[in-house]
């Protein structure tokens, strides 16, 4: 049985033609890119896979559970526990320091998750644990947001253009991090991107095409 599968997903934005998406299936530790031009619906697919949007039809199955059939609070909790999302921008909570940002993931998912200090050290952020997130560089902030996605040892890691605002060096670091960490915790990794630098690292991909 596959760890993660999406089947026959369609979605329609209000007043637009319905979008249909290619099926995705991934085993533990596998990674995949979602490619496509701007406006093709890549991000919509990511939102569907994360359960942030309800599909018009189709199924999203993660470790045997169909997310498309879950309701609000159930879905929120399931997402918190089993899915880690890395956004285009780090979107860290400015009022909290680095460790506290990660603790929020534990609190809302009601899950113990990974040891935060250890995780931060692994990601080369050990010294920044108590720093305000406002003092971080762009690359550091993105790594913290990856740490947040990993904090609960999710089964699926989704990344939305995680490298679009990073330089080559940081891009390299971020992709390696995502790959090694996903492999380490046995999660499936899906990266939505149009960044050529990413394609070199992950050969497996699906393409989203606008109708």
């Amino acid at each position: 049985m596959m760890l993660f599968e999406s089947k026959n997903l369609t979605y329609s934005h209000p007043g637009q033609l319905p979008l249909s998406f290619p099926d995705i299936s991934l085993q533990q530790g596998e990674s995949m890119l979602v490619l496509g031009k701007s406006g093709s619906g890549k991000t919509t697919l990511l939102n569907l896979l994360a359960g942030l949007l309800q599909p018009k039809s189709g199924e999203v199955i993660l470790s045997g559970k169909n997310m498309a059939a879950m309701n609000g609070q159930q879905l929120d909790l399931f997402r918190g526990k089993e899915i880690g999302i890395v956004f285009q921008k780090p979107h860290l909570l400015a009022a909290l320091n680095v460790t506290e940002n990660l603790q929020m993931a534990h609190f809302f998912s009601k899950k113990e998750g990974q040891d935060i200090d250890k995780l931060l050290t692994e990601l080369g952020l050990g010294e920044k644990a108590k720093s305000s997130v406002l003092t971080l560089s762009e690359g550091e902030a993105q790594r913290v947001s990856i740490a947040r996605a990993l904090a609960n040892s999710p089964k699926l890691i989704l990344a939305d253009e995680p490298t679009s605002s990073l330089d080559d060096e940081n891009t390299e670091k971020v992709i390696q991090l995502l790959k090694t960490q996903a492999a380490k915790i046995g999660a499936a990794l899906i990266i939505v991107t149009h960044d050529q630098r990413v394609k070199m690292h992950i050969p497996n991909f699906v393409e989203v095409k606008a109708v």
Partner: peptide, 16 residues
């Protein structure tokens, strides 16, 4: 609004 959306993404419910 971003913060709130992030909180939802990491598992917070609307009620929270």
């Amino acid at each position: 609004k971003y913060d709130l959306a992030i909180l939802r993404a990491i598992g917070a419910s609307r009620g929270q």
